Simulated assay, not measured.
Amino acid sequence: MAKYLVEASYLSKGINGLMKEGGTRRREAVDELFASLGGRVEAFYFVLGDRDVIVIGELPDNTSAAALALKVNASGVTTCKTTVLLTPQEIDNAVMKSGTYRPPGFDEPYEVENWEGEGGHLAED
């Protein structure tokens, strides 16, 4: 199953609901939402800052993640941002995939060897 980071922010009605229900009941509701879409919550935290809640969870696929975001955002009391989480092995697999790309202003596609270090800038010949 794919892993996702869901960052949620409460609007004023959501904050009022949280104050009425408490944090434990919100966690239970999020667990139920993930389960109803065939997934599970791995971690759930209330946070200070731009977001109010972060959730790391598993869902069967991107369609399920989109359904989760649509349900939450349609409620009108909470907004969420969903990020796909990739394992180190998935990145290793991505590095091994070949693809052809010609950057703007270049006459020919570049090769991976033309990248200059960590910055990811195309090295000049």
Rank of each mutant, 00 (worst) to 15 (best):
R26K: 10
L18G: 03
I54M: 06
D125P: 04
A35R: 13
L37G: 01
V47D: 02
M1T: 07
G99W: 07
L86Y: 15
Y101I: 09
G39W: 04
V47F: 01
S98Q: 15
T24G: 12
G22W: 01
D50A: 10
N114G: 09
R26M: 04
E124H: 10
V47Q: 03
S98W: 03
R25Y: 13
P88I: 04
K3Y: 10
G49D: 02
G39D: 02
Q89M: 12
A69W: 00
A35D: 00
N62E: 10
G99T: 14
L18W: 12
L5E: 05
D125K: 13
E113I: 07
M1I: 06
G99P: 02
Q89C: 03
L68F: 06
G117A: 07
I54C: 05
L85N: 06
Y4K: 03
T100M: 15
H121R: 13
F106I: 11
A35E: 03
S12M: 14
G120T: 02
L122D: 06
A8M: 11
V84H: 11
A66I: 15
H121F: 12
L122T: 07
K81R: 12
P104L: 08
E116K: 15
V6H: 07
T78G: 02
G23M: 02
T82W: 00
F44D: 00
I54E: 02
G105N: 03
R102F: 08
L85T: 12
L5C: 00
V55W: 01
Y10K: 08
M1N: 09
E21S: 12
G117N: 01
A69D: 01
S98G: 14
Y4G: 05
N114P: 04
G49Y: 06
V72M: 03
C80R: 06
N16H: 15
D50L: 09
E58N: 08
G14D: 00
D61Y: 06
L122H: 06
V77Q: 14
P103C: 02
L48P: 06
D107P: 08
L85K: 04
T100N: 08
A29C: 01
L37W: 09
M96Y: 07
K81I: 10
D52H: 03
G57H: 03
N16I: 12
R27A: 07
K81L: 08
E124G: 08
T79Q: 05
S12G: 03
V53I: 14
A29I: 00
S98D: 12
A69Q: 06
V30D: 05
A8Q: 04
N73P: 10
D107H: 10
A94H: 06
K71F: 13
G119V: 09
G119R: 15
L37S: 00
K97Y: 03
Y4V: 09
D61C: 05
T63M: 10
R102Y: 07
Y10H: 00
A43Y: 13
T78N: 00
D92P: 05
P109Q: 04
A67S: 09
D52W: 00
F46E: 12
V84G: 13
S64G: 01
V6G: 09
D107M: 13
H121I: 11
K97W: 05
G57D: 02
L33D: 00
G105F: 01
L70Y: 13
Q89T: 10
Y4N: 04
L5R: 04
K13S: 00
E108G: 08
V30Y: 01
V72P: 03
A66E: 09
V72C: 04
G49I: 03
P60C: 09
A69N: 01
S64Y: 08
P104I: 04
H121C: 11
L68Y: 03
D107E: 14
E32K: 10
I15S: 08
